[in-house]
Amino acid sequence: MLRRLLKDFQGDIIAVPGRLLALIFFIMLLLVPLVTNEPYILRTLIFANIFAIFAVSWDLLSGYTGQVNFGHALFFGVAAYTSALLNLKMGMPPWATIPIGALAAVVAGVVVCLPALRLRGPYLSLVTLAFPLILLGIIFTFTGFTGGEFGVSGLSRVSNSRVTDFYISFGVMLVSVMIMWKLTDAKSALVRTGIIFHAIREDEITARASGINTIRYKLLAFAVGGFFAGIAGAFHAHFMRIAGPSNLDLFLSFQAIIWTVFGGITSIYGPVVGVYIMYPLMEFLRVVPEIRMLIFAGIVVIILLFMPEGIAVFIRDKMEQTCPRCKLSNVWWRKTCRACGANLR
């Protein structure tokens, strides 16, 4: 059994440079608190974990299913407010409010999906853009309950230790990303959703003609995307101890898109890479506050100009080559496939 596991590990992880790199990165990340207890560094990594979940959830919904969502912050905000209000008004602890907040985001996802059943392309995107604005309107109408522009503050912390916060956020990120990866894996023998999401994005009519209930799968994509964006939003609210209108901001929705496109859309690991490069980079650039945004924009433009599929996909393509016969990934220096022996050059 152990030998079999080791063999699988060697075949599926060690032999594939991209996955090996990801493994090394995550192990290094896990060891960060042992190297430094600097709260600012841990804070940066905690937010990177939270935003990685958020960006990957956008990739699942928009990259894989093709339902381009310009108002993804809606799910983030709904969960943040739900979890904040439950915590403050009903005294519920974060371990209860975070999942409930995420479930509220699922409901929001289903509501947003209703027009998605009738609209496509830019029309759908414009409608999704309106939803956070509608919720903002509601928040500003019931200021006594929602705190209006000041938000709901004074929430309980997830834990009283920054290191614990880091490990919790890391664990949640890892599990969330793994689930989303499995759900979107077109080669998965476990679930069919991946290939169906691809099919819906590529040609919805053909997918329907093949007997796929596309409505059900679009609903699923919105619900799952909403759920994980909600996990990120609720966690963010408890870590910041405040849920406010900025949780529904257009800026936040666009950040998810920028991180994803920068890392590599329709890849799941792309948004993770995008967030882990861009978010700490923005923090690092605080030393030059005047040109911080300029450098950020410059890097994004140059990367997208020369790596249009995203930095993570670009690097993966450089390190790996796919066997033309068995479609298995091989390290770039191999001349023949490690499984079927087919010529790779």
Binding site: Y40, R43, T44, F47, H236, M240, I242, G244, S246, D249, F251, L252, E283, R286
Partner: peptide, 9 residues
């Protein structure tokens, strides 16, 4: 733009 940024700052 971002209260998250403000807390980090």
């Amino acid at each position: 733009l971002s209260p998250t940024d403000a807390a980090a700052a």
